[in-house]
Design a protein around this nucleic acid. Structure first.
Lengths: 202, 202
DNA sequence: GAGTTAATTTATCAATTGATAAGTTATAAA
DNA sequence: TTTATAACTTATCAATTGATAAATTAACTC
């Protein structure tokens, strides 16, 4: 039967995932010990193993949580904005606002620290949450005639490129909310300005 | 007095640095143990400590070696090419050809794994080898009238942006030489095409 | 109130880590 | 030939790691 305790298991698990997200995404998988996570959650290290089978499972749940949030946000952007440039700017804005630390760290961990058996699942999540919405925006833009079909950059490669541009803007550490808002606003504009019109003087 | 042995101390040290570069730049500082480096060098782990005072010193020497090579290459590019677009393409080409693994890993390690006391020195190296040549190319391009002065992207921020674009193209692992050449050629062209003219259809 | 069980703690393990001490070998200078 | 020493190896250390076992606490059901 379900319990009603001061701190429910659900709350503890959410606490663990949120704490682990902050730590893993800033320092990387290897650099964060299970003791560190437990300490910052206010519990002891073996207590983690009541909620998750091992360290990797915590990491995977963190990644899953991030991807789900992203997928929802991306869907909203595509719903609320029709213009290609607006869409790219809004997606960039979301990523700067919500992805602390560098995401590159996450991709490195997924490639080198996480068991191969989970790669396919994660790649599927990533396609749904990150890749497809950006690719859709670009191909629709090309179809509508907003966006050039560049010979040296076919749609898939262009998508990777745009995602990498976005990643490169992520701030290294957590800022206070207002500073981050203004940073995200400035950088998302800069990205679309360069991406759409380039730096060449005509 | 200097010795003449079958394998000189100099050779061993170079071997250590080259091996450590490959391993550190692929897997990151924390993921590579001193035993792993020693093993792939064909020596025992304590032997490393005859040539370097500690693990961090090996890492710093790796970084120094990379930065020196880069500084030389950048100088050559600026000497041999006058056109802004050519310069950016050549710099991109060099980075793809010579930087294995992802460089973002290196920047993460420098920020989170290396003692603060070395940061200033490394930042100086980085400014000289990476930042200044690209910034010089861009500001000269603006002065010559090749490159737009974009309000949302002042020269310094534009430089960071371009460097991030280059970083994002680095292949995750070592390829064979010819495949890498063709990859570097393709990607460097793609980068300058987008960077200079953008993706907007006119 | 008794009993069950979820949630968590204390104690502990084996493996891996960076680093050091002490002994060994080979080369060059004397 | 002796000798000093650079370049190693073997043996070992204390600290940290992810993980498990066993004991403890608290809450809900009956």
């Amino acid at each position: 039967m379900a319990r009603k305790k001061e701190v429910s298991a659900e709350q503890t698990q959410r606490n663990i995932i949120e704490t682990a997200e902050r730590l893993f995404m800033t320092h990387g998988y290897r650099a964060i010990s299970t003791r560190r996570i437990a300490e910052e959650c206010g519990i002891t290290q073996p207590a983690l193993y009541h909620h998750f089978p091992n360290k990797q499972a915590i990491y995977l749940e963190v990644v899953r949580s991030i991807m789900i949030q992203t997928e929802e946000a991306m869907a909203h952007v595509l719903q609320d904005h029709a213009d290609s440039k607006d869409r790219i700017r809004q997606i960039t804005y979301f990523m700067i606002m919500n992805h602390q630390g560098d995401m590159t760290q996450m991709f490195h961990d997924l490639q080198y620290e996480i068991d191969e058996e989970h790669r396919d699942t994660i790649q599927e999540w990533w396609m749904r949450s990150y890749f497809n919405p950006v690719m859709q925006t670009l191909t629709e833009g090309i179809a509508k005639g907003d966006i050039l079909s560049i010979p040296s950059a076919p749609p898939m490669e262009l998508t990777f490129f745009v995602l990498e541009m976005m990643k490169s803007f992520l701030p290294p550490s957590k800022q206070e909310h207002e500073a981050r808002r203004s940073f995200a606003d400035k950088k998302s504009k800069m990205l679309v300005d360069i991406l759409f019109d380039g730096i060449r003087k005509k």
